[in-house]
Design a protein around this nucleic acid. Structure first.
Lengths: 233, 233
DNA sequence: CGTGATGAATAAGTCTGACTTTTTGTCTCC
DNA sequence: GGAGACAAAAAGTCAGACTTATTCATCACG
């Protein structure tokens, strides 16, 4: 991950950020920088830097003579990787995971279609390698190794799409996939059908068959959605 | 937009942010906080707050004994509304607009499908109202009025999807639509086919026909993509 | 009564200067 | 030429004094 302790203000954020995103302070609550500085035993300057960061994430708003007020969830920068991480670590992790999976289901098929058009030879090779890695670890409870290749696969697809907005969702996808493997119970080996689909996507991309790559990826994400629906219908 | 002058550090960001996102400092360049503070005629504390914000956007990285180094574009938080605004105001606006339009083409159809399932009666009414507003202003060079309804329409769709990640893209869509109307030349009235499609989407959502809403919206976004391809093939 | 002006209290905002800590580059010395 | 010590540089931290905007309450006036 990113460095955890990058300065005192970072330490403050590591506990204050999750508190806010967990909804511990209802929207409209006011925090006083002086009190916060006391609580975390840091100087006001450090506390102010932390508040500035929270402010840039639209988690809070700082106004004179009022204090630091917590903004309603609807205004948060929910695409900020830091915010995503905080929320995934908190109580509404399931809800968050569902939102992100729906996002994946919208993005990844289109990204795969673009990848089929734009992927370099090197990226095609990487993709095939990842798919093979998934096959090799799809049986025998080698979930960790499988995950590594799965994440790499989707990263390559997103990168190869040539769209920077898609490419930057690699971390999000990684978080979602890791979450599925680690937190949510996943005793069994991955679905063989999903593994096959990944191999086929790699083929389609290499063949430059955009429509097929898109459709196959859609099937993968539909599978991911169904998985969630089974877990929490 | 958001408040322009929210403190001294905000003023600094208003000029430093665009400079960085415009690529005026190549990746790896180092800035010294002291020099920046002098340049902007602010105290070091204010300058530090500004740097913290840039850091949280992953535009720069601050390291001891080294300085504030500019990160490569691939690491920027390109979903940060502030970053998007800075980049849209800069030189690579066209590229940015294309990326965002591709993003729209992935998100909005899925969002429309979900909206057909989840939209409240009130949201359906709003949608119809927006569509009618578009029709009413589709002829006679009433581009501004048309834009207002167009933006509102897409916002309602994204909100009604019930997915917060989609909902938060409302501002992005607004920027893209506004960009198309204002910056890129658009002398003529909007495409009548597009107007009809919006009306039909509103109908499909009200009827709860997810597949149809999705497909119609896909046509809208395909149109938006073609528009860009014609302007800069 | 309301209504608008006055003023005081409050909390964020700003600046300054001194000090600490980490990192890096260099200069020995073996 | 490599290992370790040393010095310089820049960010990081802190404390305290001061400024400024905002809110709220009070009070006079219509």
């Amino acid at each position: 991950m990113t460095t955890p302790g990058r300065g005192l203000h970072g330490r403050v954020l590591d506990t204050l950020g999750p508190e806010i995103t967990a909804g511990e302070y209802p929207p409209g609550s006011v925090l006083r920088t002086d009190e916060l500085a006391q609580r975390f035993d840091v100087s006001r300057s450090v506390m102010r830097e932390a508040v500035r960061v929270l402010e840039s994430m639209h988690l809070v708003e700082s106004r004179r003579r009022v204090g630091v007020t917590v903004r309603p969830m609807a205004e948060w920068n929910v695409y900020d990787p830091q915010v995503i991480r905080w929320r995934l670590a908190g109580a509404d992790r399931p809800r968050q995971l569902r939102s992100l999976t729906v996002l994946r289901s919208a993005i990844e098929p289109v990204a795969a279609g673009l990848a089929a058009r734009h992927a370099t030879a090197e990226q095609c090779a990487e993709l095939t390698e990842c798919a093979l890695g998934m096959v090799a670890n799809s049986r025998g409870h080698k979930l960790e190794e499988y995950l590594v290749h799965d994440v790499a696969f989707h990263r390559v697809i997103l990168d190869a799409s040539g769209n920077e907005m898609f490419a930057r969702l690699g971390d999000v996808v990684a978080e979602v996939l890791a979450g599925r493997t680690h937190h949510d119970v996943m005793f069994e080996d991955p679905d063989p059908a999903a593994v096959t689909l990944h191999v086929q996507v790699a083929e389609a991309v290499r063949a430059g068959d955009a429509a097929r790559a898109e459709e196959l990826t859609r099937e993968i994400t539909v599978g991911a959605l169904q998985e969630l629906d089974i877990l929490a219908p």
